[in-house]
C-alpha cells in the first residue's frame, strides 16, 4: 500500500508497491553514501582544476556528442535489421544460411571490436574503394552489435513454447501471421531488458570509432584533453554525455515493459 506513511527497509513480501517515502529515503541514503565516497576520493586528489580551459571547447563537445547520437542511431537501426536476419538465418533449414549465421555470431563475438574496426576500415573497405569512414564505422558497429542482438532475438523466439505455435496453426494462421501476431509480440516483451542493455553498449562502443578518426564524442574529448592538458575536465563531461544517451534508453525500455506487461 503506497498510503502507508511509515518508512520501511524491506520491500513487502507479497511484491506489492513500496511506499513513496520509503523509496525516497532509500535513494537519498545511497546517493549520500556514494557522494561521500567520491567527495573523499576527489578531496585527496592533488589536482589543479581548470574548467575554464575546457569550457572554451564546449562547442566541440556538443558537435562530437551530436555525431555520436547520429552514428549510434544509424548503427542501432541497422543492427536491428541485421540481427533479425541472422536470427532467422540461424533457425533456417537451409544449411548455408544456418552456418553463415553461426560463423558470423561466433566470429564477431569472439574477436575485439577494435580489431574489427581496423580490419574493416583499412582492409575490407579499402579493397572495395570505400573511403567514407563514417559509413564504414556505422556498418562495423552495426555488424558488431547485430551478433549479440541476433542471439538475444533467437533466444527470445525459442523461449516461446511449442503449444503457442501449435495453437496458432490450429486456428489457421499462416507462418507469417504466426510470427506477426503470436511470436513477435511475446518475444519483444521478453527481450526488452537485454535489448536495452545491448543498445546502451552499442552507444558506448561507438567511442572506439575514434581510432579511425571518426570525429565522435570521445575523439573530441581526447582532442580537448591534448589541447588543454585538463584530463578530468575533458573526460568527466564525456561520462555525463554518454549517460544522457543511455539513461533514456533504460527508462524507455522500463516504460515499455510495464506497458506490455502480462503474467505468463
Amino acid at each position: 500500500m503506497s498510503t502507508v506513511k511509515s518508512v520501511t527497509w524491506f520491500a513487502p513480501e507479497d511484491g506489492s508497491d513500496v511506499s513513496l517515502i520509503s523509496r525516497v529515503v532509500a535513494c537519498a541514503i545511497i546517493c549520500f553514501l556514494l557522494s561521500l565516497l567520491f567527495w573523499f576520493a576527489f578531496s585527496r586528489l592533488q589536482y589543479g582544476w581548470n574548467w575554464g580551459a575546457v569550457w572554451q571547447y564546449r562547442q566541440k563537445f556538443m558537435q562530437g556528442w551530436l555525431v555520436t547520437v547520429v552514428i549510434s542511431a544509424a548503427a542501432l537501426s541497422l543492427s536491428l535489421l541485421i540481427s533479425v536476419f541472422f536470427a532467422c538465418a540461424r533457425r533456417s533449414r537451409l544449411l548455408l544460411l544456418r552456418y553463415l549465421a553461426i560463423l558470423y555470431v561466433e566470429g564477431v563475438r569472439g574477436t575485439p571490436l577494435l580489431v574489427q574496426i581496423l580490419v574493416f576500415f583499412y582492409v575490407v573497405a579499402d579493397a572495395f574503394g570505400v573511403s567514407n569512414r563514417y559509413a564504414v564505422g556505422i556498418i562495423t558497429l552495426a555488424l558488431f552489435a547485430g551478433a549479440y542482438l541476433s542471439e538475444i532475438i533467437r533466444a527470445g523466439i525459442e523461449s516461446i513454447s511449442e503449444s503457442q505455435l501449435e495453437s496458432a496453426r490450429a486456428i489457421g494462421l499462416t507462418r507469417f501471421q504466426t510470427y506477426r501476431f503470436v511470436i513477435l509480440p511475446q518475444v519483444v516483451r521478453r527481450i526488452l531488458p537485454p535489448l536495452a542493455g545491448q543498445f546502451a553498449s552499442l552507444i558506448k562502443d561507438s567511442s572506439l570509432l575514434s581510432i579511425i578518426a571518426v570525429s565522435e564524442f570521445t575523439l573530441n574529448a581526447q582532442e580537448v584533453n591534448s589541447y588543454t592538458f585538463s584530463t578530468l575536465e575533458s573526460y568527466l563531461p564525456l561520462a555525463v554525455g554518454y549517460l544522457l544517451l543511455t539513461l533514456p534508453i533504460s527508462l524507455f525500455s522500463r516504460y515499455l515493459e510495464q506497458k506490455y506487461h502480462y503474467a505468463t
Binding site: S163, E166, S167, A170, G172, L173, Q186, R189
Partner: peptide, 30 residues
C-alpha cells in the same frame, strides 16, 4: 485447419492477448 475448431488440454490461449482478442485473432486474420 481453418474449417474446424480445436480445443486443447492446456487451453493454449495467447497470453499477450485479452480474452476478446484471442477470439478475434482467427476471425480477422484467418
Amino acid at each position: 485447419r481453418r474449417s474446424i475448431g480445436v480445443v486443447f488440454q492446456s487451453f493454449n490461449l495467447f497470453p499477450h492477448l485479452t480474452a476478446l482478442e484471442n477470439v478475434l485473432l482467427p476471425l480477422e486474420q484467418a
